[in-house]
């Protein structure tokens, strides 16, 4: 009963929906990210952020990096978004709506201006670069088995370093957030 359609979709997502399989989630990603930035209500911002994480995961899957997409969903939606939400709930949400005052003396207008300038510069480089005009190559895929082999082979030092970093970070986070004992 393995469905040929679903199988073909997962083998080459581009074939059926064309570019829209990437562009549609990308559009959702941008809208959700924009909403997350401008929302007054912190919880709404966090939920929009979660939506943008999901959309980013789908973009990864659509680009053929299905393992990265799943890891993105698992780590960001399952862990990071929940940690953010927990932090919001633990830090008394009374002052949620005040958050227009300026950090680093820029203010909303200043922040938006800096963002716009950086965006304009980046887009300028992107659209003048000859590198970026390359057409889409044949479907690329990153099989899970190969990723596993690479992680345990060439990248094993990096993998262990990441493991040490994560352990240290989580133990550190627990120690920082622990109540001070007299």
């Amino acid at each position: 009963m393995t469905c040929e359609f679903l199988k073909a979709c997962s083998a080459d997502p581009m074939k059926f929906l064309g570019e829209w399989f990437v562009l549609l989630p990308a559009l959702v990603l941008l809208m959700a990210a924009g909403a997350a930035v401008v929302m007054r209500n912190l919880i709404h911002a966090a939920l929009c952020l979660t939506l943008s994480f999901i959309a980013l995961g789908i973009v990864f899957i659509a680009l053929g990096a299905e393992f990265v997409g799943f890891v993105q969903l698992l780590v960001y939606v399952g862990a990071v978004a929940m940690v953010i939400v927990f932090a919001i709930l633990l830090t008394k949400p009374e002052r949620l709506t005040k958050s227009v005052s300026a950090f680093s003396g820029l203010g909303p207008a200043g922040g938006a201006a800096v963002g716009f300038v950086v965006l304009a510069a980046l887009l300028g480089f992107i659209f003048t670069s000859p590198l970026a005009k390359k057409p889409l190559p044949t479907p690329a895929s990153a099989p899970v088995a190969d990723i596993g082999q690479a992680l345990m082979g060439d990248y094993v030092v990096a993998l262990i370093a990441i493991g040490v970093l994560l352990t240290a970070a989580l133990v550190g986070a627990a120690v920082i957030a622990m109540e001070d004992k007299p």
């Binding site: 990437v22 912190l42 830090t91 800096v114």
Partner: peptide
């Protein structure tokens, strides 16, 4: 689809993040 479109999407996302970081005063934001 070209690489440009993806890079442009990524640039816009980065600009959103930068604007949020610079303009919001709430640490969680």
């Amino acid at each position: 689809m070209t690489l440009q479109i993806l890079l442009a999407i990524s640039a816009i996302l980065f600009a959103f993040g930068l604007a949020a970081t610079l303009s919001r005063s709430n640490a969680i934001m």
